[in-house]
């Protein structure tokens, strides 16, 4: 079981690199959706007993992170008359290098954080922090408002991975926190993107750079 889990955490970290390296927006959305599905399945592997509540978390997460939100983003992409590329401020190799540095940092930090026995692997913390940093990187180095939403989603995924550790002791916090935050924030951001679309015709934060010192 532990080796399977470790494999999944490593896969999640590799998906982060895919997110950083892909040039097509649709491709990135697909990877983020895949990440969401894996995240949704993880509670099944971590918790021995399956009850109704856990089932709901699993289904809810897969539906929201794996299907609904990616679907919303693809819809927004189709409606907007924007180029379908990611358009980063820094080159893709540079993004990947930064991602690698971030992952190394995540592993270093999680090495120093003692884990409770049971879920002995500190790969979980590594995967969580590395995903958070990847999201942060996408947020700060990508031009479009839509990519920033994607980055925020990835960052949230990272927080969710760590939340899995608390699923047994503080289930409601994890459920409430992640779902409410994602849903409301993305919904509100969706509204704003809609307004941006109307105001600027092309939705790109490139245009959102009038305010500065």
């Amino acid at each position: 079981m532990t080796t399977l889990l470790d494999g999944i955490f490593i896969a999640l970290i590799l998906l982060n690199f895919l997110i950083l390296g892909k040039a097509s927006l649709q491709g990135v959305i697909r990877v983020v959706s895949a990440q969401g599905v894996i995240l949704g399945l993880l509670p099944l592997l971590l918790n021995a007993h399956l009850d109704l509540r856990l089932g709901l978390v699993v289904l809810g997460t897969i539906a929201l992170k794996g299907l609904i939100l990616p679907r919303m983003l693809v819809r927004a992409l189709e409606e907007l008359s924007i180029r379908r590329e990611v358009e980063p401020y820094i080159s893709f190799p540079a993004s990947l290098v930064l991602g690698a540095l971030g992952t190394a940092f995540a592993m270093l930090v999680s090495h120093h954080l003692p884990m409770a026995h049971g879920l002995g692997s500190d790969l979980l913390t590594s995967a969580s922090l590395s995903t958070v940093l990847t999201g942060f990187l996408v947020l700060t180095t990508r031009r479009k408002a839509l990519t920033q939403v994607l980055g925020y989603l990835v960052l949230e995924n990272g927080v969710f991975i760590f939340g899995l550790l608390l699923l047994e002791s503080l289930p409601f916090l994890v459920e409430m926190g992640v779902l409410l935050d994602l849903f409301v924030a993305i919904f509100v951001m969706g509204v704003v993107i809609h307004h941006i679309n109307r105001e600027f015709a092309t939705e790109s934060t490139e245009r959102l750079t009038a305010l500065k010192d």
């Binding site: 408002a145 925020y152 960052l155 951001m189 704003v192 307004h195 959102l208």
Partner: peptide, 17 residues
């Protein structure tokens, strides 16, 4: 609009952390 967007994105990241 630009200000609202930045406010939402930056604050949401803060809240997530």
């Amino acid at each position: 609009l630009e200000a609202t967007w930045k406010y939402l994105i930056v604050s949401s990241v803060g809240i997530a952390l």
